[in-house]
Design a protein around this nucleic acid. Structure first.
Lengths: 150, 150
DNA sequence: TATTGTTATACTCTATAACTATA
DNA sequence: TATAGTTATAGAGTATAACAATA
């Protein structure tokens, strides 16, 4: 493991990343609130819009206790955005799946998240590629894997 | 305002930024929990460790309602990490300030946030400079200003 | 009158533990 | 016995509205 640096450039990059994180979160909460959703509800809906899954898997993805998902899905279901389906292969399991309306809301949420893409338009194709490669190396080769797995 | 891009490189960068945000938040919560603090408490303590300030200013910095700060500072005060001081120039104002112990805890929290610095050690000096310049342009020239102001 | 901080209220998220129905 | 989902509970964060003290 490499030693953390404390030179001015490194410290400024850390500061810039902190700004990215703060701005990203604000933008996300604002997009969710525009649909009268909380951040947690928007995250669950976004996850399910990619692929319906058992309640427990939602909890694993979001790294929280399964009991929390019960309440969040309750509220999304009351809003008509998500529904619970039986799993034919295991009657203990309930599959959480977005409704037609939920899929539409999830799509609007993704499109509203302009922050992450819009500033990138300021960069050239070559610069975006450089940025991608630097972020890849920062996060390690298995970063994408981590996020897409349980 | 430039048009958001939808090419594969841009979309991957967006995904990578999402990963950065998720990892940064996890690391922050973990560091706070190691001191039996919530994320919100750690953020307030970190803010006050830079400079004591009125309760209302804390709320402005964290972009939340002032009434929330009352409770968070209550808990930090009960832990002996923060104290309320009168403002000599305005008796309505209470200045929230870290105690000696609070300053120490804030320092430990900063040092524990290895994530943001450690992966940067994988990059060369030149690469970190490139990354800095790309992030600067992404965030705009006034990004640092925004964060350090009310 | 306006501002600062607080209180009261209601809702949501969170973890923990106990419960049920399945496996 | 073990697992999936739920319920019950308690603590914390959040916004809103109303309040006392001060400007």
């Amino acid at each position: 493991m490499a030693t953390p640096r404390t030179d001015p450039v490194t410290l400024e990059v850390v500061e810039l990343i902190g700004t990215v994180v703060a701005r990203y979160y604000e933008e996300y909460e604002r997009a969710a609130a525009a649909h009268s959703l909380t951040g947690a509800q928007a995250r669950v809906l976004g996850l399910l819009s990619m692929e319906p899954m058992p309640m427990r898997k939602v909890a694993n993805k979001l790294r929280c206790e399964p009991s929390n998902i019960t309440g969040i899905v309750d509220r999304l279901e009351a809003r008509g955005l998500v529904e619970r389906r039986p799993d034919p292969s295991d009657r203990r399991v309930k599959l959480a799946a977005p409704t037609k309306e939920g899929i539409g809301t999830a799509r609007q949420l993704r499109e509203a998240l302009g922050f992450a893409r819009e500033p990138l338009a300021e960069l050239s194709d070559a610069e975006r590629t450089v940025l991608r490669d630097l972020l890849r190396r920062m996060l390690g080769a298995n970063a994408a894997l981590e996020r897409s797995q349980p």
